[in-house]
Amino acid sequence: MTTTTDIAIVEAEAPERRRGWLDVVLDFCRRRPLGAIGAAIVVLMILVALTAPMIAPYDPLAIDFAAMLAPPGADHWLGTDAYGRDVLSRIIYGSQTALIVGFGAAFVGSTAGAVLGVGSAYFGGRVDLIVQRFMDIFISFPLIILALAMVAILGNTLPNLIIAMTAPMVPRCALVIRSSALSVREMPYVDAARAAGFSHARIILRHMLPNVMAPYLIMLTSFLGQAILLEASLSFLGLGVQEPTAAWGLMLRGAAVEFAETAPWMALFPGLAISLAVFAFNLFGDSLRDALDPKLRTG
C-alpha cells in the first residue's frame, strides 16, 4: 500500500519561529510605535507607583502651611495645594491608588463579564435567557448610581470600592462579549472541541475565550480609563478614597475647585495625569489586541 506521505509534503522551508521575549518587545515597538508609546507610559506609571517612596520629593501627606498654594517652581515642581502638600508627590502616590483601583476593577470586571458572556453564549437556551435578563436589570442603572449604591451598602474601603466599580462593568462587558461569543459558538472548531469530548469549562476557557480577545481587550482598556475616572468621580462625590490618601480624583475635588482660578495647577496636573493614563491604556490596548491576534502577528 502506498502511504500518503509521499503525496503532499509541502514546501520545505519552515522558518524556526522561536523568539526571545526581547525580540518580541522590539518587534512590537517597530510594528506599532503608538502602542509602544502607550506601553511605555503604562510601564512608567507602574514603575512610579512601585518606587513612589523613593522618587517622591515630599511626603504626600505632609502639611506645610508655609508653602500653601505655592505655584510650580524650583521647590515644588508642580506647586502645592491648599494645605501646602506637594502636588507632584501626591500625583506620584496617587498613581498607586489609580492602578490598584482602576486596574483591579477593570480587570476583574471585564474578565468576569467575559467568562459570563461566553458561558451564556455557549450554553444558550434557558441559561442564556436567565443570565441576559439578570444583566439587563443591572444595565438599566447608570454606572455611577450602581457604584454609589454599592459603596453605600458595603462601606468605602479599597476592596469594596473595587467591587462596587466592578459590579456595573460585569454586565456591560458580558453583553458585548456574548454577542461575539455567539458567532464563535457557531464555529465548527467549537463543535470539534465538543466532539472531542472536552469539558464545558475547557471549551469556554480555552477554545472560546481566546477568540473573543479583541472585544475583551477593547472592553478592558475602555474600562481602565473609565475606572480611573469613576474612582475620581466617587472620590469627588466623597464616596471613594478618603482624605488624606493621595488619589487623583480626590485632588480634583474640594479646594481644587475653590482655587481653580488662583491656583489652577492643583486641578490641572492631576487632571493631566488622569488623561494621560487613560490615553496610554487605550493606545496600548488597541495595539495589544492586534499583536495578540495570530493572523496579524506574522502578516
Binding site: 465548527p188 472548531y189 463543535d191 470539534a192 472541541a193 472531542a196 477554545h207 477568540n211 495570530p294
Partner: peptide, 16 residues
C-alpha cells in the same frame, strides 16, 4: 467517534 468538517478555515481554532 470523530468528525472532519467541510470548511478548513473555520474548523480550526485560529488561536491555537
Amino acid at each position: 467517534i470523530q468528525v472532519i468538517f467541510q470548511d478548513p478555515y473555520s474548523s480550526l481554532n485560529p488561536r491555537m
